Simulated assay, not measured.
Amino acid sequence: MAGSGDAQYDDGTEYKGYPVEMTELIEDTHGQQFLSKLRVYLPEEVPVSVQDLIELPDDKNNHRQIRKLGGFYDGNTGKRDIWVVYL
Rank of each mutant, 00 (worst) to 15 (best):
L56E: 07
A2D: 15
P57E: 15
V84Y: 04
L38V: 09
Y41L: 13
P43G: 06
T23H: 08
Q65K: 15
Q32V: 08
D81I: 07
Q65S: 13
K68Q: 09
L56M: 11
K37I: 07
Q32M: 10
E24R: 08
K60E: 15
S49M: 02
Y86H: 12
Q51N: 15
I66K: 00
D10G: 14
Q65I: 09
Y18P: 05
M1R: 08
T77C: 03
G78W: 03
K79Y: 10
Y15Q: 04
L56F: 09
P43S: 10
D28R: 01
G3W: 07
G70E: 05
Q32W: 07
L87Q: 09
T23S: 14
E45K: 06
V48M: 00
K16R: 09
Q8H: 11
S36G: 04
S49I: 02
E27P: 04
L69P: 05
R64D: 05
V40F: 00
N62G: 02
W83E: 07
E21Q: 13
L42Y: 06
T23G: 06
E27C: 11
D59L: 10
L53V: 06
Y15F: 07
E21K: 09
K60W: 07
E45A: 09
D52V: 01
P47G: 05
I26T: 04
D10I: 06
V48S: 01
R64C: 05
D74N: 13
F34M: 09
H30W: 14
L53M: 10
T29R: 14
G71Q: 03
E21L: 12
V85Q: 00
M1V: 13
W83I: 03
G5F: 02
L38A: 05
D81L: 08
A7S: 08
L35G: 06
I26V: 11
H63D: 13
G3F: 09
G17R: 03
L35D: 12
S4I: 14
E45I: 08
Y15A: 03
D74P: 00
D6L: 05
K37S: 10
L25A: 14
P19R: 02
L42M: 09
G3R: 11
E45H: 09
D59P: 05
A2Q: 12
L87I: 11
L38C: 08
W83G: 02
Y41I: 10
T29H: 15
K68V: 02
G17A: 02
S36K: 02
V48Y: 01
H63A: 12
V20P: 10
P19F: 01
D58I: 04
I82E: 06
T77A: 03
G78P: 01
L87M: 13
W83D: 05
M22V: 11
V48Q: 01
Y41Q: 10
D52F: 00
D74T: 04
Y41W: 13
G5Q: 03
L69F: 07
V85G: 00
G31M: 01
Q51V: 12
I26K: 04
G3P: 01
G5M: 04
P43I: 04
T29G: 08
Y41F: 14
R67D: 00
E14V: 13
Q32A: 13
D59V: 07
G75H: 06
S4T: 14
N61D: 15
V46K: 00
E14A: 11
E44R: 07
